[in-house]
Design a binder for these strands. Structure first.
Lengths: 163, 163
DNA sequence: TTCAAAATCACCCGAAAGTATGACCCCAAA
DNA sequence: TTTGGGGTCATACTTTCGGGTGATTTTGAA
């Protein structure tokens, strides 16, 4: 039951793009027709018209490509500060990171959590939905064996797996 | 030295693109002229011609966009080990503490928050009611000018007003 | 090519966190 | 003695968080 609703909503979400594109294309055709009639009044203005068409469709192509191309993955540079204590020599970090077996995305979410961002803000920052962040945080908590984000932050800072 | 060579090579690479683009554009214009003469022979084939132009330039636009956004951003995790003398655990920033004007109780709550405790757990630890903790945290957030406990923790650790 | 992990998104529900407001007590300073 | 800050607690409400579940798509490795 919920699967149907799920599919329907997803279908709508996808179609929004398609519908938008369709409408835009229709508008563009109207514009072209208008341009055509305008220029046809003039004499030997064909080249100008062709130029306009070429320009418009070049822009359209660029827009299309940019729209349909997936947003680039941001480069994540994690600078880890390894605090070296005088007495207790725990300069772990990488070992702990591997032990916890966190994925790249989960580590990103963890870092943003530690920066004090809400799930909503994290989702906006990473260009994904709120639900996705929830899923990430869940897996994060499971792997780190904690129950709250504050515990995750505390552990992460203590182990030095985030800055 | 290697930087110069690097820049030179990069410059050449870029210019190669520009030259390639120029040549392609020239070829494209020739193609268009040819198409124009071909179609002009026919009667009322304008739309077809315009369509061809539109298509070609749409493809051109897409190609341009894809070409110019080519560089694939790899996710690189840079591990920078910064050795810091361990004074963060000892010296508390007294000036910041006074500036924020936190009460004793509020500071206690803040510390326990940073330890990853829930409001419920904090209230149990301090032998007060949950509502009291909520009140404390509220005033805490006001004084620190934050909206969430995670932000308060982040700021407190950054300023060094808690361990 | 196939398979598993990762990443994405959805929906529901209960718990926790946070907001707003008001009240009472205590104590020290004006 | 009044006044104000700190501490306590309450009710009512909204928002966010987290758990559980299921699904599809992407991707990287075998």
């Amino acid at each position: 039951m919920s699967t149907m609703a799920n599919n329907a909503s997803r279908f709508l979400t996808r179609n929004k793009e398609v519908v938008l594109y369709g409408v835009s294309l229709a508008a563009l055709l109207l514009l072209l027709k208008w341009l055509e009639y305008r220029f046809m009044i003039l004499d030997h203005a064909m080249d100008l018209y062709i130029g306009a068409v070429a320009f418009i469709f070049t822009v359209l192509g660029i827009w299309l490509a940019l729209k349909l191309t997936k947003p680039k993955v941001q480069t994540v540079i994690v600078e880890k500060q390894v605090f070296v204590s005088n007495n207790s020599g725990f300069s772990i970090n990488q070992q702990e990171l591997e032990r916890l077996n966190l994925s790249k995305r989960e580590l990103e979410v963890l870092q943003l959590m530690a920066d004090g961002l809400s799930n909503q803000e994290i989702s906006a920052r990473l260009f994904v939905s709120l639900n996705t962040i929830k899923t990430h945080s869940q897996k994060l908590f499971e792997k780190m064996e904690v129950k709250r984000r504050t515990q995750a932050i505390e552990m992460a800072k203590r182990l030095g797996i985030i800055r």
